[in-house]
Amino acid sequence: MLDATSPAIRPTHAPADHPKVRIGKVGVLLANLGTPDHYSYWPMRRYLNEFLSDQRVIDYPAWKWQPILQAIILTKRPFSSGAAYKSIWNEDKGESPLMTITRDQTAKMAEVLRARHGDRVMVDFCMRYGNPSTRSKVREMVAAGCERLLFFPLYPHYAGATTATANDQFFRALMEETWQPASRTVPAYFDHPAYVDALARSVETAYAGMDTAPDVLVCSYHGMPERYLRQGDPYHCQCVKTTRLLKERLGWEDDRIVSTFQSRFGPEEWLKPYTVDHVADLARQGRKRIAVIAPAFSADCIETLEEINEEIRESFEEAGGEDFTYIPCLNDDDAHIAALADVVDANLGGWLD
């Protein structure tokens, strides 16, 4: 994916002993959450330790949180999380689905941007936690001659625990560069028309293959503590707006679509309604057919393939639900890649003129 084939040259008017450098490229670095290297205990523990030690994710004081994390959570959770990862693992490639999908997205993005801009743009991906690290990919792009870097967290909605921490890591990587490239970060794109249209197309395609349309479409977003909303995080408002825009694009009435939140962790109150509880409520209310989509995820991962398609499905069926459909994330769908490429182009303004 990373095109580092441009020849290294000695800068014009430089002395004969000046080292050769690669120059003139624009780098586009896609970023996603991350994945363990394997579902066995120690890789899971390393991954969870990095993830749960991030104060953007768990903002309790380290003196209070770290003893709990190290002595209790990381002795047990790697086993349960490892089992969940094992149930969805891409055994053929020896990696999680998130890794496979992100690599495929990057390859398609590189093709689209190459068609639009030639070989002036390099495209690669990194993970906030685990491998490939943000630091390693920034280093590769700078070494390959990228004088400008566009960092693109693949989260449609801004949240401190996703977009902000990815940007933090990007800025830390830049701090290690002797010659820092000019850099930009891509803002949230939750209301971008092409993104909303790609979501709507995925719903229309799924519904077209059903004999009977679901009673309700549940838009399940990753949750966060309610406290973060009160502190000014815009995530909740952006999620609700995406659902409204999707409803309007589909031409539906209000009662056909709902926003819920999943993946609650810890003792605090999180954004409500909780998906796992709400789908059961729908079943008890006689809404026996539902579909679930996860607009906040750009790629299928543990939270969609295991949590939604197993735990949340089970909650619905145990409450009397009869027909549960999970609509996959947009992944490397062509409409999704085109939408992301439009977002990239909008943020490259002035760099390729």
Rank of each mutant, 00 (worst) to 15 (best):
G286I: 02
D332A: 14
P11A: 05
T163A: 06
S315N: 02
L48E: 00
R135K: 15
M210H: 13
K25G: 12
L69C: 13
D104A: 15
M141C: 00
E91L: 09
G320K: 04
A188P: 01
P43F: 00
K76W: 14
G321W: 03
L150R: 02
N90M: 01
S40Y: 06
R128S: 11
V28T: 07
L199S: 06
E310M: 10
P7D: 10
V196C: 06
I312M: 12
I58W: 03
P7C: 02
G349E: 09
A31G: 14
P234D: 04
Q70S: 10
A299S: 10
L348F: 15
G118C: 13
L113W: 07
P67N: 07
E318I: 12
A188W: 11
L98K: 02
I257G: 01
Y41N: 03
I290F: 04
L74D: 07
Y60N: 08
A14C: 02
R148N: 06
E311T: 06
S136Y: 13
S80G: 11
Q285G: 13
D3E: 11
R10T: 05
M127C: 15
H157N: 08
P328H: 03
K108H: 11
A71F: 14
D124N: 10
T185Q: 13
R45P: 04
K241W: 06
I257K: 07
Y60R: 13
R289H: 15
F171E: 15
G27Y: 06
K25R: 14
G286L: 03
E306H: 13
T162Q: 02
S87V: 10
E177C: 12
A208N: 09
K20N: 12
F152T: 00
F190G: 03
L33H: 14
P36H: 10
P273Y: 00
A143D: 05
S315F: 02
L250M: 13
L154C: 14
H222A: 03
G286N: 04
Y47T: 00
E307L: 01
S220K: 00
M122I: 13
S263K: 01
R249E: 05
